[in-house]
Computed example of a mutant assay.
Amino acid sequence: MACLLWTVSVSFLVLASMVMSTAPKQAVDVPFSRNYQPTWAYDHIKYYNDGKEIQLLLDKYTGTGFQSKGNYLFGHFSMDIKMVPNDSAGTVTAFYLSSQNNEHDEIDFEFLGNRSGQPYILQTNVFTGGKGDREQRIFLWFDPTKAYHKYSVLWNMYQIVFFVDNVPIRVFKNCKDLKVKFPFEQPMKIYSSLWNADDWATRGGLEKTDWSKAPFVAAYKSFHINGCEASVNDKYCETQGKRWWDQKEYQDLDADQYKRLKWVRKKWTIYNYCNDRSRYPTMPAECKRDRDI
Rank of each mutant, 00 (worst) to 15 (best):
291 R>S: 14
83 M>P: 03
154 L>M: 15
13 L>Y: 10
273 Y>P: 01
212 S>H: 13
14 V>M: 15
76 H>C: 13
207 E>D: 11
198 D>G: 10
227 G>Y: 00
62 T>E: 15
3 C>M: 14
183 P>D: 04
2 A>S: 15
250 Y>K: 03
57 L>H: 00
89 A>K: 01
217 V>P: 03
156 N>Y: 10
94 A>I: 03
284 P>A: 07
80 D>K: 01
203 R>L: 12
259 K>T: 07
159 Q>D: 09
222 S>D: 02
85 P>K: 02
85 P>M: 07
102 N>T: 07
158 Y>P: 06
237 C>I: 04
157 M>L: 12
101 N>H: 06
288 K>R: 14
27 A>Q: 15
235 K>L: 11
2 A>M: 13
181 K>R: 13
184 F>P: 04
289 R>F: 08
223 F>H: 02
213 K>D: 08
97 L>H: 11
71 N>C: 09
290 D>G: 09
11 S>K: 15
83 M>C: 04
182 F>Y: 11
41 A>M: 07
123 Q>K: 13
62 T>M: 15
143 D>E: 02
125 N>Q: 09
198 D>V: 04
157 M>R: 15
83 M>K: 02
55 Q>N: 09
282 T>H: 15
30 V>T: 03
129 G>W: 08
19 V>T: 09
6 W>G: 09
198 D>R: 10
10 V>L: 14
292 D>W: 12
190 I>H: 02
130 G>I: 01
266 K>N: 11
218 A>N: 05
34 R>Q: 03
63 G>A: 03
241 G>V: 04
218 A>Y: 02
266 K>G: 04
186 Q>D: 06
204 G>N: 05
6 W>V: 07
36 Y>D: 00
190 I>C: 04
204 G>I: 06
7 T>H: 14
163 F>I: 01
191 Y>D: 11
240 Q>R: 14
136 Q>H: 08
239 T>N: 15
82 K>M: 06
207 E>S: 12
14 V>F: 13
260 R>K: 14
248 K>G: 08
46 K>V: 03
58 L>Q: 00
226 N>A: 13
217 V>A: 10
109 F>H: 03
166 N>I: 06
283 M>H: 07
263 W>M: 08
196 N>V: 04
234 D>K: 05
173 K>L: 12
122 L>P: 02
172 F>S: 01
127 F>K: 00
210 D>W: 06
208 K>F: 04
91 T>E: 02
70 G>N: 08
187 P>F: 00
8 V>H: 15
196 N>D: 12
67 Q>G: 08
87 D>V: 05
270 I>L: 06
250 Y>C: 00
194 L>F: 03
245 W>G: 08
85 P>Y: 02
186 Q>M: 14
2 A>Y: 12
192 S>T: 05
114 N>P: 01
165 D>N: 12
93 T>Q: 13
